[in-house]
Design a protein around this nucleic acid. Structure first.
Lengths: 344, 344
DNA sequence: ATGTAATATGTAAACGCTTACATTACCAGG
DNA sequence: CCTGGTAATGTAAGCGTTTACATATTACAT
């Protein structure tokens, strides 16, 4: 199939290229009859506008760049889904790139963004946010950050309200009557983790519940770290009655550790997580956790990015959106009798 | 940050645009001293080539299109990962699009591919492969199909050897001594499913094991269908001793049904799956299944696509690659005593 | 018919880069 | 000092659109 361009259509229709362009793009005025003729010819020739050329000329690509730290993860999957959907709705394409373990992350991102390939970028850097300011300042197109620390105030960001979610799920434990509540932390330098801990802590404080140092153990969001974290929490004389794992994967590790130790959930120890990954519904007992509206996160990011691109929002004015999280009450907190099984 | 183009560099360096281009692209001859000067200025001005313009001129975009039926699924996630990695290695970008439940699938795909936005496309259509021939024939750039039926012979495709995998896992059941083996099928029109059944059947035949009609129940690759499929298989007087679920999700449903009926796996009934999704390692007993090299699938697709783009492979010559699958022996077939738990 | 304002179309200049071809600079051998 | 060859650089023509501006056509009121 050979390529067909406007010139060919113009020739056949006996008009100039400009008229063809106007007819096809719908902008500008063209006599109805002429337009019809042009459209027919375009159809017949199976014409598709060359979006590269169009991009050059219009100085926009209708493409959004998405840079994520990784791809293989339920979180990112949902995120991409949300982003793609919203972009599709707005007739935009998605140029996807994972940052490949930050190998030369800054350089790659900049390269990416400044190449004129995209009209805007959705960027989720993991930890090291130090570069961010620089990236943003040197970038040539609007950027929306995902889950940026609250200290990043140089551009738009869409975030999850970790604090509120952690507060809620912790409070739920308290309402169950638990007073000895332990926590398995996420990575040190992780913003989400820090916020979750803040919410956890605040909920305890709000109810006058003490938090002994021994009830706080480190973790890193991996299943294994949850396993060991649980073991450490439960191997002391003073055992917690309930445990808040700062994410679901660690809760999963805790499940396994519990099973190893012959401890029943929630009878011997209640466990709650954070994230509401799919797995949390599949394991038994089902996991009480905090739902994070990931797809929504992606969609909102796209929406705001488009606003910036379309000039409805000022890219230079900082903007911060926090999406509320929702408590998902299942069995692991002790709420309902652990139903044997069910079709999910 | 204002945009800087070659003209500015040329002006500063006191040379022509052409020389700048040559210096920057590395092609063509430029005096070492001049090149150094130009590079320095480019650096200083923080110049990035405009890839759109470059694309227009060179008639290539260094971008690969990826069209998938969905995004949210472990399979696609891994696939995208493999594709992205390999593309990154070759300095290509990925333009991602899900086909949104085939809503006007053909049109979208064509639009996408023929817009000159990409140099080639990796396409995974789900069922209805009827359009494929047409899409391929009308396309303007090389295409690699993923998991295309063997009847599709109009272009390149990379596939998984479902037959061989099913044969292997079935044979494994036979070696366990099971003679009454049931199967829960995938969707009717699904190519993978058909191949898996063929392999299953062949393995039974090879060992002279009969397959009563009642041991074959329909399913559709969902967990729920696995649940009901299991129930149907086990609610007859003549019960199978082992069950081959054509994918892991259905095996998962079968697990739940078994638990409901108070049947132990593998003591009362062995279960094996296909796909080796992550979950298959997390459930207890761990699931014996067939590993599908998904990332590899993606990587291979990219590799061949690049060959076609670079003219090393003829896009018009059909090409078919089948990746072998691997048997993953875990607990659900009865192989090892069902260990209580372990850190995975 | 005629002038005026709208409407329809054409012309040509971008957009930022690559590249074939033309030109100039340079150097060695005669 | 000239000649020819090679290396370095310049010129300009694309690449396929969009779009500002110019021009041609039409419609309508007078």
């Amino acid at each position: 199939m050979k390529k067909v361009d406007m010139a060919q259509i113009a020739a056949r229709a006996g008009v100039s290229i400009a008229t063809v362009s106007r007819a096809l793009s719908g902008s500008g005025r063209v006599r109805a009859e002429t337009r019809r003729r042009i459209l027919a010819i375009a159809e017949e020739l199976n014409y598709r506008p060359n979006s590269i050329a169009r991009g050059l000329s219009r100085r926009r690509t209708d493409t959004l760049g998405v840079i994520l730290p990784e791809l293989v993860d339920e979180f990112f999957m949902d995120l991409v889904q949300g982003i793609e959907e919203e972009a599709y709705r707005a007739n935009r394409y998605i140029l996807l790139s994972s940052s490949h373990r930050q190998r030369d992350f800054l350089r790659t991102s900049l390269e990416f963004m400044m190449s004129g390939r995209v009209d805007g970028v959705i960027l989720m850097a993991s930890q090291r946010m130090n570069d961010i300011e620089e990236i943003v300042s040197r970038s040539r197109c609007p950027i929306v950050l995902l889950n940026a620390g609250s200290h990043v105030a140089c551009t738009a960001s869409v975030n999850v309200d970790n604090y509120q979610g952690a507060f809620a799920v912790t409070e739920h434990l308290v309402q169950h009557g638990y007073r000895k509540i332990g926590v398995i932390l996420g990575p040190d330098d992780n913003y989400d983790s820090a916020e979750r801990f803040r919410g956890f802590r605040a909920a305890l404080d709000a109810h006058g519940i003490p938090l002994p140092e021994s009830f706080v153990v480190a973790g890193d969001f991996t299943k294994t770290s949850g396993f060991y974290g649980f073991n450490r929490l439960m191997s002391q004389s003073q055992r917690p009655e309930a445990i808040f794992a700062e994410n679901d994967m660690m809760a999963l590790g805790a499940y396994e550790a519990a099973s190893r130790l012959g401890l029943r959930i929630p009878q011997d120890v209640a466990i709650v997580g954070f994230d509401d990954i799919r797995l949390s519904r599949y394991i038994r007992p089902t996991l009480t956790t905090v739902h994070v509206p990931i797809e929504e996160l992606g969609r909102r990011a796209v929406r705001y990015l488009l606003q910036m691109i379309d000039g409805e929002a000022d890219p230079h004015q900082p903007y911060r959106l926090e999406l509320t999280t929702g408590l998902i009450i299942r069995e692991s907190c002790g709420c309902s009798p652990s139903a044997p099984y069910g079709v999910v």
